[in-house]
Amino acid sequence: MADLMVNIKNLSKAFDSHKVLDKISLNVEKGENLVVFGRSGTGKSVLLKCIIGLMTPDEGDIVVDGQEMLKLSYSQLNEVRKNIGFLFQSGALYDSMTVKENLAFPLYRHFNLPQSEVEERVVKTLEMVSLLDAIDKMPSELSGGMRKRIALARSIITEPKLMLYDEPTTGLDPLTTKEISELILELQKKLNMTSIAVTHDLICANIIADRAIFLKDAVIAYEGTISELTSSQDKFLQNFFSTEVIKA
């Protein structure tokens, strides 16, 4: 039990009468990369938001790094959140701040680092996503793919123990997709980072996934390694992945 990073039991979430997640149970080990598949609107983003406490589930338990997320006070919750990174599907860059300020924001807030070290970390992290020349730009001056990569940089700059990626490579060209996926893999190897990544992207999933789950009809319908899922004889999975391969 001790080496579980995320432990979810019987998690349910509905909007009005529409059940999005129905008694989902899920474990993620420390240092593991889990990929979450599912068609659009099946509750992948909702799952990530429940884990970090942006949405409150209707029932169930969520334990992250030994902490019962739903029983914590606001300040305790924030302590746990300092060790979690979250990449929003939409990026959610602060549009009144420059790229540099966006990246420095979480650093200044939580780590009593001197100015010089903050700048060093910002530069280093921007280099990781190969966007150092965007350092003084405003988010509105960036392309969609650039915004995605800056958002990724902002979420990993604090080197969290757990990363929740909501579609880290959507909208990126295949080459950048490969680079970003390799970066995610490298973070896992170097920092022993655990991650849960929602993605549709087989290139990305192939590179990063230790294990994958597939959400369908509000439950985890399939689970296994990528090759197990892609070579499955199940009609639905075959259908899903064949179109995915063509897109990729």
């Binding site: 942006l54 302590e79 979250f86 929003f88 959610a92 860059l93 602060y94 549009d95 979480p106 939580h110």
Partner: peptide
Amino acid sequence: AELGSMRVTEQIDAMEVSAVN
């Protein structure tokens, strides 16, 4: 308008998850 657009583009959520109130 300012806070409204921060809300609908999830910037407020982003602050929340980076443990800033």
